[in-house]
Simulated scan of single mutants.
Amino acid sequence: MSGLVVVGVDGSTSSLAAVEVAAREARLRGAGLRVVHAFVVWPATHVPLGPPPLEPPEPPEGGLRDMAHRLVTEAVERARTVAPDVDTSHVVVTAEPVTALEAQSRAAELVVVGSRGMGGFVGLLAGSTAVHLAAHGSCPVLVVREQPHADGPIVVGVDGSAAGQKAVDFAFAEAALRDAPLVAQHAWTTWNAPMPAPQDKSMPYANPPGALAEEEERLLSEALAGRQERYPGVTVEHKVVHGGTRESLIEASRSAQLVVVGARGRGGFSGLLLGSVSQALLHHAHCPVAVVRGAVERH
């Protein structure tokens, strides 16, 4: 076994969809799959309000553990239906789900979660576990929102930042594993594009028409440099969009099987662990989203 894919489950429909995606990822990578369920026992909620019963009740933790093992067993069976040849294990821990999965991410090459769990509120489109892991996990986090388009491309958001290079690497690797085309998309506006050096130094703010667009084309090409040689079988489309990054990637997700973004992009603040683009995709994308951090930050 060359690696490990971890999937968090809670019995919800969203988490079972994540199990199927995780099983496929493990099979593609030749990796093992670990199904993880975490729950917290709140003693205050089990204090009897009336007279003590005649029969001693089952310890609350024991009942929760039985339920946890049942849902984990269901998840493992679902995974083996999708990828019977993958070495699948499971673990049940008493801990906050975000804490448990963050710890599991330290030994994994990928963590997969559903966009919402059983406790998700109707108005909360991306669950707190998914958002937290995308910001704090020690490996890439794949959040399963809607069912992917099996024949769609991998779309990667490219902004030219150093932090975004890991996302580009991950997207190329995913495209190679899935034998899928890759769309490298870069969006720009006159407000966020770096100003090219003026050709006429006497007119520092004057540039010929199209200069900004050419500069953004160059930025995209430089950000992808060297990857095509490492992944010669991957067909890459360079796509430069004049418009908002969030809106253009959400639109691209309609026909994609996966969208890949960095946790923070160009101009990200050092204290902001998850950028506005990645957060927007976690809430509104039409396919699974992989969030890749540039480097593990100590916090």
Rank of each mutant, 00 (worst) to 15 (best):
A167Y: 01
V168L: 11
A173C: 01
A173P: 01
E174W: 00
A175C: 07
A175Q: 03
A176I: 00
L177R: 15
D179Y: 04
D179Q: 15
P181V: 01
L182Q: 02
V183F: 05
A184L: 06
A187Y: 01
T190S: 15
W191R: 13
W191S: 13
N192W: 07
A193M: 10
P194R: 01
M195H: 10
M195R: 10
P196A: 09
A197I: 07
A197E: 14
Q199R: 11
S202N: 12
M203E: 14
P204I: 08
Y205R: 08
A206L: 14
N207T: 11
P208F: 04
G210E: 09
E215R: 06
E215D: 12
E215L: 09
E216H: 03
E217K: 11
S221K: 12
L224T: 03
A225H: 12
Q228Y: 01
E229R: 09
R230N: 06
Y231C: 07
Y231V: 03
Y231T: 02
P232M: 06
V234G: 02
T235G: 04
V236K: 05
K239Y: 04
V240Y: 09
V241R: 07
G243W: 00
R246D: 12
R246H: 08
R246M: 10
R246Q: 14
R246G: 12
S248E: 10
S248G: 11
L249Y: 00
L249R: 00
I250H: 02
E251V: 08
A252S: 12
R254K: 14
S255T: 15
S255A: 14
S255E: 15
A256V: 06
A256I: 02
Q257P: 08
V259P: 07
V259N: 07
V260N: 04
R264V: 14
R266V: 12
F269Y: 13
F269I: 11
S270N: 12
G271P: 12
L274D: 06
